[in-house]
Every structure is written in C-alpha cells, then in structure tokens.
Design a protein around this nucleic acid. Sequence first.
DNA 1: ACGCTCAATGGAAACGTTTCCACGCTCTTC
DNA 2: GAAGAGCGTGGAAACGTTTCCATTGAGCGT
Lengths: 362, 362
Amino acid sequence: MTQRPKVTIKDVARAAGCGVATASRVLNASGPASPDVRERVQNAARELGFSFSSRGRALQSSRSMTIGCLVPSLANPVFAEAVQGAQEALAGTGYQLLISSSNYEADADSDAISTLVEKEVDGLIVTMVAPARSSALGLARERGIPVSLMFHDPIDGLPTAHVDNFVAAREVARRFAELGHWQTAFLALRFASSDRSRNRYAGFHAECRARGLPDPTLIELSEAEANTPELLAGILGSLNGVTAIFASNDFLAIGVQSAARLMGRCVPRDLSVVGFDGIEIGRLLEVPLTTIETTPEAMGRQAAQSLLDLMQGEAPVQHPPLPFTFRAGATLARPGAENRDDDQVAPWPPSVPSLKTDLKQG
Amino acid sequence: MTQRPKVTIKDVARAAGCGVATASRVLNASGPASPDVRERVQNAARELGFSFSSRGRALQSSRSMTIGCLVPSLANPVFAEAVQGAQEALAGTGYQLLISSSNYEADADSDAISTLVEKEVDGLIVTMVAPARSSALGLARERGIPVSLMFHDPIDGLPTAHVDNFVAAREVARRFAELGHWQTAFLALRFASSDRSRNRYAGFHAECRARGLPDPTLIELSEAEANTPELLAGILGSLNGVTAIFASNDFLAIGVQSAARLMGRCVPRDLSVVGFDGIEIGRLLEVPLTTIETTPEAMGRQAAQSLLDLMQGEAPVQHPPLPFTFRAGATLARPGAENRDDDQVAPWPPSVPSLKTDLKQG
DNA sequence: ACGCTCAATGGAAACGTTTCCACGCTCTTC
DNA sequence: GAAGAGCGTGGAAACGTTTCCATTGAGCGT
C-alpha cells in the first residue's frame, strides 16, 4: 500500500554513484562497464526494486512493444481462439496484445483501428468487416504500421492467415452431390458483414452450378432467428424440397439440428446438415456434427508470426491457406426417398446472382 | 506507403505560428485561446494530419490509458466472454485492454502480471490461479496499481466480480436430493488450480452433508480424459451406484452426456447430469443441459466498472455476487428404480476431507 | 619519459507531451 | 489618468529512457 514514488534509473545511478548513462549500459548490457561499477549498479537496482519504465523507453525508442488486435467479437470462440493463438505466438517476444472488438460493425472497426493507431501500436492483427475498403486501415499502412490479417482472403500487400473458404465450401457441395442431394440451402448469419460467409456461399454455389444442381437457396438469418429454435424451425419449414443445409458456422448448424428436432424431422434421415468451423462441442453432440474443421488457433499464430516477420523488415509473404478437414460426423446422409416425391418446385431461381463480383477466384 | 516522419505538436505550432503550449491548449481544449489562434491551430492540425502521440502523453501524464487483463485462457468461452464484457464496459472511456493469458499455470500468471506491471498499465483485471498468494499481484498493489478480480471470491481489499460458486453448488445438491438422488459425484477438470472448481465442490459437499447424503465422490479428470468420451466412459463405468453427476463446467457435463450414450446409459433416465456456467450451446442440445447459468459477460463488465471506480480514487467497494439461475434443461430427473438395487457399497468415505480449510464460509 | 590508444565514464540532447509561470496587453474602475 | 484585474500567450521544465560525444585515466610501445 505504501505509494512509494516510482524509482527511476536516476535513483539507481545515484545510489550506485555513477551516471545514468552507465547505469543504463549496465542494466541493458548494452555497453562497456567495469566489473566494479557493474556490481554496484546491479545491487542498487535490486535493492531499490528498480524496473524500467516502458513509457520512457517507448518514447525514446519509438517502439511501444505493443500489437493491436481487432476482431469482431471475443464472444465468438473462433475469434477468441485465434486471439489466444496470436497471444501464444507472441509470448516470449516481449510484445503484448492490445485488443479491441467491433461487434461486426463497420464503423466500429474503423474507429477501433484509429484508436489502436493513435496508441502507436507497432503492428496490427486484424479481422474486420471490409479490410480492403477501410480507410482507417489504409491510413495505418500509410503510417508504416505493419498489418497482418486473419480469416480474410489475401489483399494486395497484406499477408493474411486464412482458410480457403471457397474451396472448403465446394467440398461441402461435392459431398452433398455425391450423396444425391438435389435441392440445398445455405444459412448465413451476418452475410453482409462477413466476407467469410460470402465466400463460403460463393464456393458452395459455384460447385452446385458446376454439377448441374439447382442454385442453393440463400437464407440470411437475424440474430433472433439464429438463436431461437422455434423461429428457425419456421424458416426451415418453408424450405420445400430442400434435403441438405449448409450452415455458415457450427452454431447455426447445431441450431438447425435442434430446430429440426422441434419439427419432428430427423437429422440426418430427413434433413442433412453441415456446419463450418469445427468447434469442439460439435464432436460431443448426440449426433456429432458434420462440418468443415478449421484451426483458428493456428490462424492466430500464423498471423502473429507473419506480423513479426513484417516488423523485422522482411518483405510481406503470403502463406498458403491453412488446411481444413472435412469432419464426417453423423448429420450428413443420403436424402430420404420420401422427400423426393413432393419435389414440385421446378426451376429454382438463382437467389443472389449479383453476388458474383465478390467471389473469390478459386 | 510514404513513410513520412511523424508530425508532432511542434510542427503544428510552427505551422500555426504559435507556441507549443498554445497549440496544446487548443487541441485539448484545456485552456484559453483566442478564436483567431484556435482557428489557425485547428487548421494546421487538420492539414498536417496531426494526431497525438500517446507515448509522449503517457510519459508526461504518467497514465498509459491501458488496462492489463489476465485470464487463464481465451480458448475457454467463459473467460473470452468476460473479456468481451470488460472491453465493452471500457469502450468510450479511452482505456484499452492489454491481454495476457496463463494457460492455467501459476508461474505463467505471475510472469504475466509482472509483465503487465512493467508495461505500466493503469489498472489490472485478473483471473488467476491463486490471487491471494501471488507475490506478483502483491507487488502490483504495493505500487499502487488498482486491481479488480473476476470469478474469484472476495479477498481483503480487492473488489471481485463473481458468482457465488458455493451457494450455486448447494443449489445443485438440493435439486439432486429433492429428486431422491443418493450417491452423487463431482467431476472436476483443474481442481488444484481453480478455486472456482474447489468452491463448487465445497458447496456441493456441504449441502450433501447437511442433508445426510453420502459425501459426493470427487473425480479429477486429466485433459485427455475430459476430451475423450471413451476414457470418460471408462471412468463413469467405475462409479457404482452413482445416479447423479455434477460437472464443474458445461463442457464436462456435455462430455458426460456423450460418454453415457457410449455406455448405453440414457440421460437422464439412468444418469442425471448437471453442469455449470450456462454456455449457450447447452440449450441447443438434443437433450438440453441442466446447468447453473452464469453471466460471464456481466462479470467482465462489473470488473471493469469496479476498476474504473477504483482508478477514480473511490474506495474499493465489493458488489454482491452476480446472480445465477438454475436452468432446468432435461438432463436431470429422478433416479431410475433399477439403480437402487445394486446399492451395496455401504459407507461412502469422504473423498477429500482435508479440503475444508479452503472452503468458503457460505 | 612521452605520446598514443583504448576502455570506462558521465553530461547532455532527444523523444512528444503537459503544465507552471511570467509576461504583456486590454479593459475596467476609482 | 493611473492602478489593478484578467485574459491570451509562449518559454521552459518535467516525465524516464537511450545514445552520442567528449573527457578522463591507465596501459603500452618506442
């Protein structure tokens, strides 16, 4: 409780009977010093309980040893794990993570970037709504702050740690098709603000097309719909003829399972469901979730490592996408024969044809 | 990309043809200034793209506008949500969160605290292995750094945002007893390093005693056992006569469900399970999890608010525990009649009697 | 013995800000 | 008309470090 005034390097120097320059050299092992004075300085520092002020250091060295990290929300375990991964990669390097979250709002994440830049972080690890269009991010880059992305597709000079959503989604379409599913749907939560979700839809859509399947129905859910099985059941009920659903994340997929149960439809006999992300819990369900398994922690680690490289002055290098695996689970099966009969909705209209411009080029 | 040199307040002052003091006053609206010079300074600042250096500011004001936050791991959604809550409470105050995680290791969290203190954070929000015994935390307090805790029980002068684990666990015992359960077990994951888990066991144990039930069997799982349904099933198989299990968190409880399924035992008919935390996913399971629902986000928010108050110089005030609710779910029922018969294990020995010293005083 | 080299050392500037203080000016007031 | 009040202003110190540079003294070769 004794609010003793902060002990500075001057105090140490005085106690050791030498100049501050010498004290600094000794404590940093950054220059010559006689054994004698070295000893005195170290003793003094120990006795006074000296520790460097990173404020003074930051000012003088113009490095804050701090990295800004922006994600949509830590309440989403995918991002939380990524941050954890970044954090682990940074442990031992002396860098600390300054975090910020945007709640999936484009304005908020611009503000957040600006704030982090004003805090003079030495680098940025970012997942945001629209990194390519963010002027705040552009400003940061102009100021020479190294930036690495997570979860996004590569953008010009910005290394990104990502999984290939487009390709992964095509894999899902392939599995659906091979089992004989015909009419499918894609469930999205924040389609407008998530390029991940859009890329997944794009890949899914592309592969369906390529195989001559009708375009998948795109369904954008509100938060309320996603979290309320009853509402979700209502929506699923309106999908006549759809035998397989690709949910843009595992939570949604699990929600679909429970909604289906509510409707008295059996997964996977009456309805197949595939998720995305591969969260742990999906494996433990009574009917384990079929999903694309990704490694958010590895993504965070890679993003942090790329950033470290960048900060070392290396040229930006884009790593290949991180691997994903198709986790078989038990929510995917051939469509039940009875569903084929009431298949009267003939030419399924493409749901979001204008989306093409945003699509990833495979 | 133009690595233009940082523009400082001196540049602004020069451009506006005034002294730095005046420029500072104008830009901070912290003192008098004529409309004329105010105008000139603001224009200059805008044109030069000036923004304050928080380094210089921090050094001068001896406030870093940064708060250190230590949690065991962001991969645990309970902590991630708490951090998110803290973050939200801090949004708009100008404070940023510097995060660190210890991976549930006592040494790591001492190191982390030291690092955060050296970074000269203005305050600390902490969940650690043993806050009462941590010398690093003591050091931080000696230096006059305000500290608030999350998830822990109150300790002398430290405000903590918490839920009353002891009382909540007694509630679980009460429910078990009322339904006629006799032999119960408590499943813990990191018993040694989690006072939360110990308090839950203590409350559970105390209420069982108070009702004349045999002491619950305490089972400490390894990470591997917790995450592998097969191993978990083996352990459950050895629990003769136990009809109800209280798991120290929801993940464990869900694991028990799937292990039980593996063993051909039906939840809740053959085995009742109750979890703790109230994670969202538990609600969406085919058999919704019965659990104690807590509000980690609110905990984070409260911890942040307490810290803000502390930093304003207010005396530490301990808020009452945050509310929890018993979420009914569907994994708890009367014990099946058949289990009562093979009830031959007579006097159940108290499993961890020496634990008493750690118990919370109700 | 003298000058040279080189290691050890400390003073002082610099980093970018805020704030104290003193100075000068204008406007009021007796 | 002079004194005082009060506002606007800028110089300079301070925050804690690192680093440049000059100074000192010892050791060494001739």
